[in-house]
Simulated scan of single mutants.
Amino acid sequence: MDIAIADIAALPSAAAQVLAAAGERRVFLFYGEMGAGKTTFIKAICKELGVTDAVSSPTFAIVNEYVSPHGPVYHFDFYRIKSEQEAMDMGYEEYFYSGRYCLVEWPEKIAGLLPSGAVALHLTVSADGGRNVKLDIR
């Protein structure tokens, strides 16, 4: 599934499409270069999920927890980790297999630990400055 996001105004619709396409899946993997819009898109998904907390990238904390009507939503940023062992040490399994929403930036840093059935989103910047999202179910 491919979704074109022309501008910020199109984010809510794109987020709703992703959540609908995911069905019961709860782990979302966000791939894209720095500046591709991963955190911005995660903010839109969190808003669709009813999160009212301030959503920001957990670059230094590695994981942020937000409150939603669906239960906790976990937002990960693995950009700064050096090895998969760091994710194992933080107990990633408790999050990924909790049945709760897990939104993961820089999943390629923990490629060997990613669960099957996750929703992979590949974000790219288009020539006109919009964003394209390619959605794959792993």
Rank of each mutant, 00 (worst) to 15 (best):
R26G: 11
R26E: 10
R26Q: 15
R26Y: 00
R26D: 14
V27W: 08
F28D: 14
F28H: 11
F28G: 12
F28P: 08
L29W: 09
L29A: 09
L29Q: 07
F30K: 04
F30W: 06
F30N: 03
F30L: 15
F30G: 03
F30P: 09
Y31F: 13
Y31W: 13
Y31L: 00
Y31Q: 09
G32F: 04
G32Y: 04
G32W: 08
E33S: 12
E33W: 00
E33Y: 00
E33V: 00
E33K: 01
M34C: 03
G35K: 03
G35F: 02
G35Q: 04
G35E: 03
A36D: 01
A36W: 04
A36E: 01
A36K: 01
A36C: 10
A36V: 08
G37H: 07
G37P: 08
G37N: 12
G37D: 10
K38Y: 01
K38V: 00
K38S: 07
K38T: 00
K38W: 00
T39G: 13
T39Q: 13
T39N: 11
T39I: 02
T39F: 08
T40N: 10
T40D: 07
T40V: 05
T40R: 10
T40Y: 05
T40A: 12
T40M: 05
T40W: 05
T40I: 01
F41T: 03
I42A: 05
I42Q: 12
I42N: 12
I42T: 15
I42E: 13
K43W: 00
K43G: 05
K43C: 01
K43P: 00
A44L: 01
A44H: 15
I45K: 09
I45W: 13
I45S: 05
I45Y: 08
I45G: 11
C46K: 06
K47Q: 12
K47C: 01
K47I: 00
K47L: 03
K47V: 02
K47W: 08
K47E: 12
E48L: 00
E48G: 10
L49G: 15
L49D: 15
L49S: 14
L49F: 14
L49H: 14
L49I: 11
L49T: 14
G50Y: 11
G50E: 13
G50C: 05
G50S: 07
G50K: 14
V51D: 14
V51S: 13
V51Q: 15
V51A: 06
V51N: 14
V51G: 14
V51W: 14
T52P: 12
T52G: 05
T52C: 05
T52K: 14
T52W: 02
T52R: 14
T52N: 07
T52Q: 13
T52H: 09
D53I: 00
D53V: 00
D53P: 14
A54V: 07
A54C: 01
A54K: 13
A54R: 11
V55R: 11
V55M: 06
V55S: 10
V55I: 13
V55Y: 01
S56L: 03
S56D: 09
S56K: 15
S56C: 04
S57I: 00
S57D: 09
S57T: 04
S57F: 05
P58W: 11
P58K: 02
P58D: 04
P58I: 06
P58H: 06
P58C: 09
P58A: 03
